[in-house]
Design a protein around this nucleic acid. Structure first.
Length: 314
DNA sequence: AACTGGATCAACCGCAAGATG
DNA sequence: ACATCTTGCGGTTGATCCAGT
């Protein structure tokens, strides 16, 4: 975040807000180095920073922790993990984040939020301009869940267009056991903060080069090797899977390529039969209206039960 | 080149639970 | 037992980036 930095300074409380400066990061890191990731409030009471303890903690957790994958897009594997776990746990981002090495609850939350918006947009775009009610606003839209649909093969394809440069090597750290129908996952062991880490300044030096770049590559992860892959976002895969027609991009003709991905679509699950694709000719080509009638009704998502409330989770 | 709108990210807020005195 | 403080979480917002027009 550069440009005009919005530095808010509350003179009454003497609390500084807004983007963190390099110097503040330095101070915060020094504090953590000395005392560990705790006593956040003391940072202010000692006059080290004019930030609230909350703000300090957040900064550490989301940006300064040495094991973070800052600036690395979610891999397809991670996306699937989030989707599966969200279906399982609901919006328990912190919990979900424990299954993803180097990801914070904020990362997961942001990823999910973006995904929901994208899906809502796709739905809106695809919806006929009829008088059907569109309750699926961004806010309350729930993505179609498919994790319990064993016929969905598309998920086995890697997805995001961004993740060509990174791969599924995460699976070793998130320890996903993909069985026939269910994916059993275990949270990562709490290796994130070995206490010695905080007091080992040489290790810190490895992570943090105060002169130039914030952190060197954390040692916890291997740099994933490039693997060519199909690049269809997970949500697109869902739609392909649901709608069973690789020509559905035509249906969403006015949807942008960036929204739906630009690669060729994966093979359609066999359960949908040999229809579609280039085999669908001219007049037989599925048009939006027939599409939504033949396949899922546009209000199908209205029927999706909301996730149970947190109190109902075991 | 300028504009626009969606995507992404960082950081804030309120609330709740736990810890402490 | 109670009040206060601290920490953690989830929701939300606003700034910036970026691709498309």
């Amino acid at each position: 975040m550069e440009g005009k930095s919005r530095m808010i300074y509350d003179e009454m409380e003497e609390i500084q807000k807004g983007p963190w400066k390099e110097e503040e990061d330095r101070v915060l890191l020094n504090h953590v180095k000395k005392y560990g990731p705790r006593d956040w409030s003391s940072i202010r009471s000692k006059g080290l920073l004019q930030r609230t303890g909350k703000s300090c903690r957040l900064r550490w957790v989301n940006k300064l922790r040495p094991d973070l994958k800052n600036g690395v897009k979610f891999t397809a594997e991670e996306e699937r993990t989030v989707i599966d776990l969200q279906a399982q746990f609901g919006n328990k981002w912190a919990r979900i984040a424990t299954y993803l090495a180097g990801r914070t609850d904020n990362d997961v939350k942001n990823f999910w939020s973006s995904r929901q918006k994208r899906l809502a947009r796709i739905l809106q775009t695809s919806a006929p301009s009829s008088s059907r009610s569109h309750k699926s606003s961004i806010k309350d839209f729930q993505a179609p869940l498919f994790h319990d649909d064993p016929s969905v093969e598309a998920r086995k394809f890697s997805s995001s267009r961004e993740e060509e440069s990174v791969t599924k090597s995460q699976s070793s750290s998130s320890r996903i056991h993909d069985t026939e129908k269910t994916i059993k996952m275990e949270p990562l062991p709490d290796i994130t903060y070995p206490s010695s880490l905080y007091y080992d300044s040489s290790l810190f030096q490895l992570y943090y080069d105060l002169e130039k770049k914030p952190f060197l590559e954390p040692p916890f992860y291997q740099i994933p090797q490039f693997q060519p892959d199909l690049s269809v976002p997970v949500e697109s895969q869902e739609f392909v899977s649901r709608f069973g027609d690789p020509t559905f991009l035509d249906v969403f003709g006015h949807a942008s390529g960036s929204m739906l991905g630009t690669a060729k679509l994966p093979i359609v699950p066999s359960c949908f039969g040999p229809t579609s694709g280039s085999q669908v000719s001219g007049s037989a080509k599925i048009m939006p209206d027939t599409f939504v009638e033949d396949f899922p009704p546009m209000d199908m998502f209205d029927q999706i039960e909301p996730l149970p409330s947190p109190s109902e989770w075991s």
